[in-house]
Amino acid sequence: MNAPGLDSVFGSVHLGYLVIESNQLADWRRFGADAIGLHCDELDNGLLRFRLDDQQCRFLLRRGPAEDVVAAGWHIDDHTTFEQIEARILAHGVPVTHGTAEEAAARGVARLLRFPGPKGIAQEIYAEPLMADEPLRMRASGFVTGDGGMGHIAITSTKPTQIRGYFTTVFDARLTDYIDETISGIKAKMRFLRVNERHHTIAVANVQGLPIDPIRTSIQHLNIQAATLDDVARSYQRVCELGFDMSLSVGQHTNDKELSYYARTPSGFDWEVGWNPVVVDESTWEPTTYQGISIWGHTPVGQTIIDRLDQFRLAALSLGHREETVPALAGDGIPDD
């Protein structure tokens, strides 16, 4: 475990891109470009890339059967910190591989290093993002990236303390807060972890008292932050008009105060578009436990009894699956405070 200190990489790590594997690239193009409002580039080899800002790639869509996020890319501030993280991984006996020139080019980075991550999501680090030559062509006015990275990911887990331990070991993640919530009679606890000024870059939820995971995909949702409230409203309208499913209506979260909605992606996990979350002040922040995820709104949209039964089926199936946690990097796990 790496305590904050002189060798801490906290603040030098930013969520940079996600790699999504899907056989529904046409639907993904409509969802990302036409509904959410992102810039879309179609590469010669059949890959899709979405941009939020000047970086060449924020989302890479590649053809394949997973219908899931398969890799997370982390922008590291400099090569010294990059090599420090690499040394950590190797010191724990975990193998690393260098991405090929073709893989780096597809992701819009100069070079990348890959190593195993929780839930089967490969973790990739890079120090030099490549900037696009062409101006953005988006339906949205813009998105907030910068020092906070491009957003966050949320996962469900049967081993949440090990996942918290993993991101603390690798990136010196810090606990921001907790949320306790009861959903359809099931009690869940959510942990929110930050690696920079963004309130959280990783959220981890588990069903309390039961070793089940009700989510098929490796992530439950991903989040991007819109520049304006108008962008949130207009993208919500486009999602509905284009016939994509809405998972949760507009609402505001209790802990980070972000106003957002959740749409269902073509691959089945959710995509949150939010606005105006709080920024953490490291000199004063203290972790807090909140009761419920929302101050108002975020009500389920169009959920049927069949949907709920399917979640119970997935939860039952998860009992027979061994969840990947990369024990060598998780330490003994961090007990809840």
Results as ranks from 00 to 15, higher is better:
residue 2 N to V: 08
residue 4 P to K: 04
residue 6 L to R: 12
residue 9 V to W: 13
residue 10 F to V: 09
residue 11 G to D: 09
residue 14 H to G: 03
residue 14 H to Q: 15
residue 19 V to F: 11
residue 22 S to F: 09
residue 24 Q to T: 01
residue 26 A to M: 02
residue 33 A to D: 01
residue 34 D to G: 01
residue 34 D to T: 06
residue 38 L to T: 03
residue 42 E to N: 05
residue 43 L to D: 01
residue 44 D to K: 14
residue 45 N to C: 04
residue 50 F to S: 00
residue 51 R to E: 06
residue 52 L to T: 00
residue 53 D to Y: 10
residue 55 Q to W: 08
residue 58 R to G: 01
residue 60 L to D: 03
residue 60 L to G: 07
residue 64 G to R: 10
residue 65 P to E: 14
residue 67 E to N: 14
residue 68 D to N: 14
residue 72 A to N: 05
residue 72 A to Q: 14
residue 72 A to C: 11
residue 76 I to K: 14
residue 77 D to S: 15
residue 77 D to L: 07
residue 79 H to D: 15
residue 80 T to L: 12
residue 80 T to K: 15
residue 81 T to M: 05
residue 82 F to E: 09
residue 86 E to T: 11
residue 89 I to S: 05
residue 92 H to G: 09
residue 94 V to R: 02
residue 97 T to E: 15
residue 98 H to R: 14
residue 101 A to L: 10
residue 108 G to D: 09
residue 108 G to W: 08
residue 112 L to F: 10
residue 112 L to E: 13
residue 116 P to I: 07
residue 119 K to S: 12
residue 123 Q to D: 07
residue 123 Q to I: 12
residue 124 E to K: 11
residue 125 I to P: 08
residue 125 I to D: 07
residue 126 Y to W: 09
residue 128 E to I: 13
residue 129 P to A: 04
residue 129 P to F: 02
residue 130 L to K: 11
residue 133 D to A: 12
residue 135 P to M: 02
residue 135 P to Y: 03
residue 138 M to R: 02
residue 140 A to C: 10
residue 152 H to F: 10
residue 155 I to M: 15
residue 155 I to K: 01
residue 162 Q to W: 05
residue 167 F to M: 05
residue 168 T to E: 13
residue 171 F to M: 03
residue 175 L to T: 11
residue 181 E to C: 04
residue 183 I to T: 03
residue 184 S to L: 11
residue 184 S to H: 12
residue 198 R to Y: 09
residue 198 R to E: 08
residue 206 N to Y: 06
residue 207 V to R: 01
residue 207 V to P: 03
residue 209 G to V: 05
residue 213 D to L: 00
residue 214 P to A: 09
residue 214 P to V: 05
residue 215 I to W: 00
residue 215 I to R: 02
residue 216 R to G: 04
residue 217 T to V: 04
residue 219 I to C: 07
residue 220 Q to H: 15
residue 221 H to W: 08
residue 224 I to Y: 05
residue 228 T to Y: 02
residue 229 L to R: 14
residue 230 D to F: 05
residue 230 D to V: 08
residue 232 V to Y: 03
residue 233 A to V: 10
residue 235 S to I: 10
residue 236 Y to P: 00
residue 237 Q to H: 10
residue 237 Q to P: 00
residue 238 R to Y: 06
residue 241 E to C: 07
residue 244 F to R: 10
residue 245 D to K: 15
residue 254 T to D: 06
residue 255 N to G: 03
residue 259 L to K: 08
residue 266 P to F: 07
residue 268 G to P: 08
residue 269 F to H: 13
residue 270 D to Q: 13
residue 271 W to M: 02
residue 271 W to E: 04
residue 272 E to F: 09
residue 273 V to M: 14
residue 278 V to Q: 06
residue 279 V to R: 15
residue 279 V to C: 02
residue 282 E to T: 11
residue 285 W to S: 06
residue 289 T to I: 10
residue 292 G to Y: 04
residue 293 I to C: 12
residue 296 W to Q: 01
residue 299 T to A: 13
residue 301 V to T: 09
residue 302 G to Q: 13
residue 306 I to T: 11
residue 307 D to R: 01
residue 310 D to S: 14
residue 312 F to G: 00
residue 318 S to V: 02
residue 320 G to A: 12
residue 321 H to R: 14
residue 321 H to D: 10
residue 322 R to I: 13
residue 323 E to Q: 13
residue 324 E to N: 13
residue 324 E to S: 14
residue 325 T to G: 06
residue 325 T to R: 06
residue 327 P to W: 13
residue 336 D to K: 06
residue 337 D to Y: 01
